[in-house]
Simulated scan of single mutants.
Amino acid sequence: MRIVVGITGASGSLYAYTLIRALHQLGIETHLVATETGVKVMQYECGITMDELKQFATVHDNQNLFAPVASGSFQTDGMVIVPCSMNTLGTIANGMGESLLSRAASVVLKEKRNLVIVPREAPFHVIHLRNMTTLAESGVHILPASPGFYHHPTEIWELINFMVARILDELKIEHQLMERWGEKK
């Protein structure tokens, strides 16, 4: 299995870091593309550099439109953009492919592969909602970073794992990150 992960400049880099580590632990080939601001937010929020993420994923420069993930002939099982800024979401919704991240998302859409977008913004205004509707109508899974509380979390990692588990579910990847509703471990 091969997954592309995109990281943008929205707050919530811990979701991306946890997802990338989970994919690595599950033995899934992961390709990572981060926007310039995504790199900065990851460093600011998590204290983690892209060099550190190279142990878990193949990292591609966002300006390198010759990277494998820019082509539909490079077979992937899907893409996740987490966190996804409204700027990136709007770029993808309007068919723009000027960076590797938006081009890779466009490739996933045109090849009818699984695209999961995790917006981390609040509140949404009407343009955000219209862009999300456009993407949803195109088959994109919109999964706002809104963790549940029915599992009685007591630590931040339980909230993060809740969202990462939902992302993995959208990608049809088996995991043991959290107890499911109605099931006991």
Results as ranks from 00 to 15, higher is better:
Pro144Asp: 07
Ser85Glu: 03
Thr154Tyr: 09
Lys40Met: 05
Thr133Pro: 04
Val33Lys: 06
Lys40Asp: 14
Ser146Ile: 06
Asn131Asp: 08
His24Trp: 09
Glu98Cys: 05
Gly72Glu: 02
Ile142Glu: 03
Gln25Trp: 11
Pro119Lys: 06
Ile167Gln: 13
Arg130Tyr: 14
Asn114Ser: 02
Ala16His: 05
Met42Pro: 04
Thr88Glu: 01
Lys110Gln: 05
Pro147Val: 03
Ser71Ile: 05
Asn87Phe: 02
Val80Phe: 15
Glu183Leu: 08
Ala57His: 02
Ala122Glu: 07
Val33Asn: 11
Gly72Ile: 05
Asp169Ile: 13
Ile81Pro: 06
Pro144Ile: 00
Glu179His: 09
Arg130Glu: 14
Ala145His: 02
Ser99Leu: 00
Asn114Ala: 04
Gly47Asn: 08
Leu177His: 07
Ile28Trp: 03
Lys54Pro: 09
Leu14Ala: 06
Ser138Arg: 15
Arg180Leu: 13
Ala136Met: 09
Glu170His: 10
Glu52Ala: 03
Thr49Asn: 11
Met86Arg: 04
Ala104Leu: 04
His128Tyr: 07
Leu23Tyr: 14
Ala34Asp: 06
His151Arg: 05
Ser106Asp: 15
Ala70Gln: 01
Thr58Lys: 15
Ser11Val: 00
Gly38Ser: 06
Asn131Lys: 11
Glu111Asn: 04
Cys46Arg: 13
Val108Met: 11
Ile20Lys: 08
Thr35Ala: 14
Ala145Phe: 01
Lys184Met: 09
Asp51Gly: 01
